[in-house]
């Protein structure tokens, strides 16, 4: 039973398509890593789930949380879920907390809003949660303002705030990118621990394959607004099936094996979202490109081992770029 299932999600800002048919699902308590370069649409996916895209964005497809359709849901319906059953941790801890309100007020209001808790009760729980993310002296800390915390501590405050109402799903958008490497490990460890404790499903958005391999059971790779490959993390990393994933893995420095003279890079640039090529978006940079790659966008097919791939290589004929029938592999959880 999936907590979140996203189907054929398309997001357009004016003429620019930023998400072009994204589908995935997250089961209860599962952690999914969404990987891709900046601009591939990871953050747009997260914002779409929370209904935080600008009002002018054009959104199609389906986002269901526990069977409830979120696309087109009203503000009141979204506010019932946001911060309560779905929470989010944003990338930049320095600017994601309100500098004019104390940490205590910002944490307490979550419980006041969603549980109708009194300020005193809410602060008591907030203090416990700060303790859980290993912030010392939480009582005193609650009275302080964001500028009195370091970057890593702020991110832990944000995580504590997101988990305060015991949500079923946490979306973390590059939660450690803005932090020092040593602090990154700390924050991720805290996140892991609490996730297991609370039985929380996690959508972890990152560009860092190392983070995914250590913290996510499953992963999905995004390129230019689409998911190109998905599957159990270990399997995908060990045996990538999409040329883009393979190329991405090849760019990682290998610390144990022989050191190459130069790290390989992927030639070319991701396509300009305003001028997306027909067919596979990776085709212009792909070393194994086939003629049909430039004409027909490959669909994400998912096999028995729950590995998905959107590529024409060794895939057999594909008649349609997008199918909508009920047995569409999109609709199966990854």
């Amino acid at each position: 039973m999936s907590v979140l299932s996203v189907e054929n999600l398309r997001v357009r800002h004016r003429a620019v398509t930023v998400l072009d048919g994204v589908s995935f699902a997250i089961a209860k308590g599962e952690s999914l890593g969404l990987v891709g370069e900046s601009g591939s649409g990871k953050s747009q996916t997260a914002l779409a789930v929370l209904g935080l895209l600008p009002a002018t964005a054009h959104i199609e497809g389906s986002i269901r949380f526990e069977q409830q359709e979120l696309i087109g849901a009203g503000r009141a319906a979204l506010d019932q879920l946001r911060g309560s059953r779905i929470s989010m941790v944003f990338q930049d801890p320095m600017s994601s907390l309100n500098p004019y309100l104390s940490i205590g007020v910002q944490m307490a209001e979550v419980l006041e809003q969603h549980r109708g808790a009194s300020r005193a009760d809410a602060l008591r729980e907030a203090a416990m949660m700060l303790d859980a993310v290993r912030i010392a002296d939480p009582r005193r800390r609650l009275a302080q303002f964001p500028h009195e915390f370091s970057g890593g501590m702020r991110q832990r405050v944000l995580i504590a705030m997101a988990l305060l109402a015991k949500p079923e799903l946490l979306i973390a958008d590059e939660p450690t990118t803005a932090l020092d490497v040593t602090v990154q490990a700390e924050v991720l460890a805290v996140l892991d621990e609490l996730r297991r404790e609370l039985g929380l499903a996690l959508l972890l958005i990152t560009h860092d394959l190392g983070v995914v391999s250590g913290h996510c059971e499953r992963m999905a790779v995004m390129y230019a607004g689409r998911i190109v490959e998905s599957g159990p993390t270990a399997a995908v990393l060990a045996n990538p099936r999409h040329p883009y994933t393979a190329a991405l893995l090849a760019t990682r420095p290998n610390l144990s094996g022989p050191r190459p003279a130069r790290l390989p890079t992927i030639a070319g640039q991701p396509p300009d979202p305003a001028r997306r090529p027909p067919g596979c978006a990776f085709a212009p940079r792909c070393e194994q490109v086939l003629p049909q790659c430039r004409e027909l966008a490959p669909i994400l097919r998912i096999d028995e081992a729950r590995r998905g791939r959107a590529c024409h290589l060794d895939a057999g004929p594909q008649t349609d770029a997008i199918t909508t029938s009920d047995d569409d592999p999109f609709k199966r959880p990854l």
Binding site: S96, N98, L101, V105, L158
Partner: peptide
């Protein structure tokens, strides 16, 4: 960005404007 955080917390617009935004 911190207003987006407040929205993600499911706060109603009234609280976002009066508690989070008006003071600054």
């Amino acid at each position: 960005p911190w207003i987006r955080t407040a929205r993600a917390k499911g706060l109603p617009e009234r609280l976002i404007v009066f508690r989070h935004a008006l003071k600054p």
